[in-house]
């Protein structure tokens, strides 16, 4: 056994803090904190899904918020049309988002670089406008969905367990031959092909798996807010997810959690002062990406190595 890296220690501490938070919230009578932390964890699950494609696979997708949205809408449709419970909603959310991601990957993975960014962005926008056109589901305004969970601690812990599982799955996949091929492909596609590995197939599988995780995050969002709207699917939300992964540390196991925590913390702190808090988040993103290669996770690991 090798010693765990400082970033792994840090993410463990962060997860333990999240696990203890409901007790603290109950003691201090601050239920809003739980709502906020639940949102943070759901975002972190979505970012973990994106990390597989963007961080580990080196594929800069700007359409992932739409995949989260597909999951959110699928859960909402099941709840509204069939009155299906949480398991049924989650199943269809994951299935729909996986399928959407498979299609998005099959089209976008024919391209590279800027073209890949634009194709994922365009396909994401297509899904966004499709959702906005769903008049029975409120169109642009979105629609309320019957609450599946009444904001109880059980839901908080379910989200927590899923985040921990997604984080552990990232660590596991990174070290498998599949994950190694994905990582290698991000560095040098030709070399992976020359090793006899069918990289396009590996990437498509990763894209679909990433969609599944994002679909799960979408279902959780619907459970959490009892509301769906296309606003959460647009390209700027996709860009925020990309920013979370980059700030946290692209490809790092702990990256999505760090990045999302930083994003939500800044949002909370700054939105108290101004609605234009992105004005501050933008420069922070630039500084982190330029100064700390490997994001927060890379910074934590690098500091102690010297």
């Amino acid at each position: 056994m090798t010693r765990p890296s400082p970033a792994v220690v840090a993410v463990t501490v962060l997860l333990m803090a999240l696990a203890a938070a409901p007790l603290l919230a109950a003691a201090t009578a601050q239920p809003f904190v739980l709502f906020l932390l639940t949102r943070l964890m759901i975002l972190a699950i979505a970012a973990t899904g994106l990390n597989l494609v963007l961080g580990i696979g080196g594929m800069p997708s700007f359409g992932h918020a739409a995949l989260v949205g597909v999951g959110a809408y699928a859960a909402a449709i099941v709840a509204l049309q069939t009155g299906g419970g949480a398991w049924t909603q989650t199943f269809w959310a994951v299935a729909a988002a996986t399928l959407a991601a498979f299609a998005m990957g099959a089209i976008s993975l024919r391209t590279r670089g800027i073209a890949f960014i634009l194709v994922t962005l365009a396909l994401g926008q297509m899904l966004f406008f499709f959702a906005a056109a769903l008049e029975p589901l409120g169109g642009d305004d979105g629609i309320n969905v019957p609450a599946t969970f009444a904001g109880d601690a059980g839901f908080y812990y379910a989200v927590f367990a899923l985040l921990a599982a997604a984080t552990a799955a990232t660590a596991w996949v990174r070290a498998t031959p599949f994950g190694m091929a994905l990582r290698g492909g991000a560095v040098n596609e030709d070399r992976i092909a020359a090793a006899g590995i069918d990289l396009p197939r590996v990437r498509l599988l990763a894209f679909a798996a990433s969609g599944a995780v994002c679909g799960l995050a979408g279902a959780l969002t619907t459970f959490h807010t009892a509301f769906v709207s296309p606003a959460a699917m647009g390209w700027s939300r996709s860009a925020e997810l990309v920013a979370m992964v980059l700030v946290g540390g692209a490809g790092a196991v702990a990256g999505p959690l760090f990045g999302t925590a930083a994003f939500v913390a800044l949002e909370e702190l700054l939105s108290g002062y101004t609605t234009r808090w992105h004005l501050v988040f933008g420069p922070v993103l630039v500084i982190v990406v330029l100064a700390a290669r490997g994001g927060i996770a890379g910074w934590i690991d690098g500091r102690t190595r010297d």
């Binding site: 596991w172 996949v173 070290a175 498998t176 031959p177 599949f178 190694m180 091929a181 290698g184 070399r191 992976i192 020359a194 090793a195 006899g196 590995i197 599988l205």
Partner: peptide, 15 residues
């Protein structure tokens, strides 16, 4: 990379 190329998906997902 080369040694493992062409392995099935089950092997590719070994820890």
């Amino acid at each position: 990379f080369g040694v493992r190329a062409g392995v099935g998906i089950a092997t590719a997902l070994l820890p």
